Simulated scan of single mutants.
Amino acid sequence: MIGWAVWFALGCFGTALLLCLYRVVFSPALTDRILALDTMTINVIAALVIVGIADGTPVYFEAAMLFAMVGFIATVGFAKFLLRGDIIE
Rank of each mutant, 00 (worst) to 15 (best):
A74F: 12
V6P: 08
A46H: 04
L30D: 07
A64D: 06
T31H: 06
V49F: 11
D55E: 14
C12M: 13
D86K: 14
I87V: 14
I50D: 08
L18A: 11
F67Q: 10
A16G: 10
A36E: 00
Y60R: 03
S27H: 07
I53T: 04
D38Q: 13
L82H: 05
K80S: 03
D86S: 06
T75F: 12
L21E: 06
I42F: 06
I73C: 11
W4A: 09
V51R: 12
L35S: 02
C20W: 08
V76T: 05
V25W: 12
S27E: 07
Y22H: 13
P28G: 02
W7K: 14
A47N: 01
I53V: 14
F81M: 12
V24W: 05
S27P: 00
L10S: 09
A29R: 09
T75P: 03
D38T: 14
D38C: 04
I42H: 01
I34V: 12
D86F: 03
F26R: 14
Y22P: 00
L66N: 10
T41I: 01
V44M: 14
G14F: 12
F13N: 11
M65C: 08
T31F: 03
G11N: 11
G56L: 03
V25K: 03
F67T: 15
T41V: 13
I73A: 13
Y22I: 11
G71T: 11
G52S: 09
N43M: 13
V76I: 13
L83V: 13
A46Y: 03
V59W: 12
L48R: 03
N43E: 08
A9E: 14
G77T: 15
L37R: 00
K80N: 04
A68E: 05
